[in-house]
């Protein structure tokens, strides 16, 4: 069973429907017990960083997420769920994140349209860096993005892929059993389902 974390922030239905479409049982939940038992965890999310962190705290989900990550349960953060993995964000002042990945979340400052919205290309750092969830994805494939902030890891080794919007930013990371993607695989058609399928096969 895959746990999709319900912390009161959008697009849960799209993520859970995508997982179901791939024939995997899914539990959209905010229960620490259910999360602990899951074979894999997806943290989705659209919305504000500080609201996301507040909700995770209020629902007492931070410790169970940290525990399941340290015991090796495969974890996928999507969009805000990816950004929340970082140390802190400068959205609405400075707000601390889960600090699983060292680094900061920053706002696009250049003179471009915000949010960065639409299909953009994902460039892998190296073929080897593609890592397990991108095995079947060719370089420069298009995925669907919607975000106004981007994450900047301190450790370059966690970066799997980058995307260009005004400047290059990190669009996918991997550290051990933790994956994070800035784009929405559940909204990226067949190629997005392919990434989700590869993640689910690790669970």
């Amino acid at each position: 069973m895959i746990a999709v974390i319900d912390y009161g922030l959008g697009n849960l239905r799209s993520v859970s429907k995508a997982v179901e479409k791939l024939g995997v049982e899914v539990d959209v939940t905010d229960s620490p017990e259910r999360i602990e038992k899951a074979n894999g965890i997806i943290l989705p999310g659209v919305g504000a960083f500080h609201v996301g962190m507040q909700n995770l705290k209020r629902l007492n989900l931070l410790s169970v997420l940290h525990e399941t990550i340290s015991k090796g349960t495969p974890f996928l953060g999507i969009c805000l769920g990816f950004q929340i993995l970082f140390s802190q964000s400068e959205e609405h002042g400075i707000c601390n994140g889960m600090d699983i990945i060292n680094g900061k979340v920053k706002r696009f400052t250049h003179d471009l349209k915000i949010p960065h919205m639409g299909w953009n290309q994902v460039k892998f750092k190296t073929q080897n860096s593609k890592s397990k969830i991108f095995n079947e994805v060719s370089d420069n494939s298009y995925f669907y993005f919607v975000h106004s902030y981007y994450a900047e890891p301190e450790d370059q080794n966690v970066i799997i892929a980058k995307t260009e919007y005004g400047h290059e930013f990190t669009s996918a990371i991997n550290k051990g059993n933790v994956w994070g993607v800035q784009f929405h695989p559940e909204k990226s058609g067949d190629i997005g389902l392919n990434v989700l399928r590869s993640f689910l096969s690790l669970c």
């Binding site: 799209s14 429907k17 479409k21 559940e186 909204k187 990226s188 058609g189 997005g192 389902l193």
Partner: peptide, 8 residues
């Protein structure tokens, strides 16, 4: 539609 179609 959302059960079958995975684009925005």
């Amino acid at each position: 539609t959302a059960e079958q179609v995975f684009i925005p």
